[in-house]
Nucleic acid binder design. Structure first.
Lengths: 205, 205
DNA sequence: TGACAATTAGTACGACCGTTCGTATTTTAT
DNA sequence: ATAAAATACGAACGGTCGTACTAATTGTCA
């Protein structure tokens, strides 16, 4: 005996909602549209969540879980320090570019600009996710310092900060401008960031 | 004799629409809401544009014009090369952070993620604006090479690419995470970018 | 000032929104 | 198999959306 019937359809709803939110944005989700795609009634779908906001929260949670499973979990399996960091970057880039389940790109990324001025539980959830992610990256970088891959006085949060910018920029150039060189340029930027962190010469970083 | 009455109200509409789009996003614009704020009828406002899409196009055009006036025009007055580039960065950062007319941040930035999967004239306009802007930056960097401020083999488009990422990241950390150190971190990243471009040691950039 | 054009208002439309409610159906557990 | 509980449906609600019309008002210029 696996899931109850209700849990199964709820999962199917969220799966479809994620795909839609990827293209239309988290605010572009509508109950009716979703119900049509899943061939069920509006009210039947609605009953699983009780409100549109709750649906959005569920979508965000699932998006975060999938992101961590695809990007962080496999990276954590790599040896700590630079190898793990490189894996993290590689997986993250891959997540941004090629994700069959998210044809419109990363939901959390588009939500970041869509929700930045819209207070509420959905925004709150997103903010705490992003802060946690930034902290996770920073810790991975600290390990690289401890391993001796990076210089001891490196500002790890600054590194994490800039790394985030590279991936934001990747989405921008890839998805909006359809720049074929975007991934390559981002890899270049990442390598520059790494070599800046490795160099012993005093340099603000 | 200045503008006709119609042109004046049209300008007022766009001004208000820009403010709204800054907070709600370019897709969050609605004729009714806008009409209420300006104390006019929906139909009266609508008549100025003929369609919602045309209103959005007008908003995007105005947003771009204002951006260039605030960021590029004053930078162009600085001596070419590094000084001009620094002014460009300073003005750009200022535009992203403190803009009384755009309480929700840069409209073109939020539109970039909102429209990346929504084909149409509004998206087309945004794309060409962003490409032009990237080209403008690249040219300013080329001048810095010619002036001898940057090394001769610098990849100017790569520099422009990364610069864009810094400003995207600024918006992200400032507007979503409310990170007080965001501006400082971006300045640090910018200076690192500059020093990387200036150093004669061969380094992929 | 009078006539004409430009601008605004008013009303209505069909479509879709999130949500509620009563009812039917199906799953689950005894 | 049967009773209870979970799940899904259909219809309807009040709203808002963009847009199309006509009518009234206002600005413009000979």
């Amino acid at each position: 005996m696996g899931m109850s019937k209700g849990a199964e359809t709820k999962e199917a709803i969220i799966r479809e909602a994620l795909k839609t939110a990827s293209v239309e944005g988290i605010d572009g989700l509508t109950i009716g549209n979703l119900a049509t795609k899943l061939k069920m009634s509006k009210s039947g779908l609605f009953a699983h969540f009780g409100s549109k906001e709750a649906l959005q929260e569920a979508v965000m949670d699932t998006a975060a879980r999938r992101f961590l499973d695809a990007v962080w979990v496999p990276a954590k399996a790599e040896p700590r320090g630079l190898p793990r960091l490189r894996a993290l970057y590689r997986n993250w880039q891959e997540w941004m570019l090629h994700n069959p389940d998210l044809p419109g790109g990363c939901v959390l990324t588009s939500a970041a600009t869509a929700l930045d001025d819209k207070p509420g539980p959905v925004r709150d959830r997103l903010v705490s996710m992003q802060k946690e992610w930034q902290a996770t990256i920073a810790k991975a970088i600290e390990l690289a310092v401890r391993e001796g891959h990076f210089r001891a006085d490196l500002d790890c949060e600054q590194f994490a900060f800039e790394l985030n910018g590279i991936l934001l920029n990747l989405t921008f150039h890839q998805r909006l401008l359809r720049d074929r060189q975007a991934a390559e340029r981002c890899s270049t930027a990442f390598e520059a960031l790494v070599s800046r962190a490795a160099s012993r010469t005093a340099q603000a970083a």
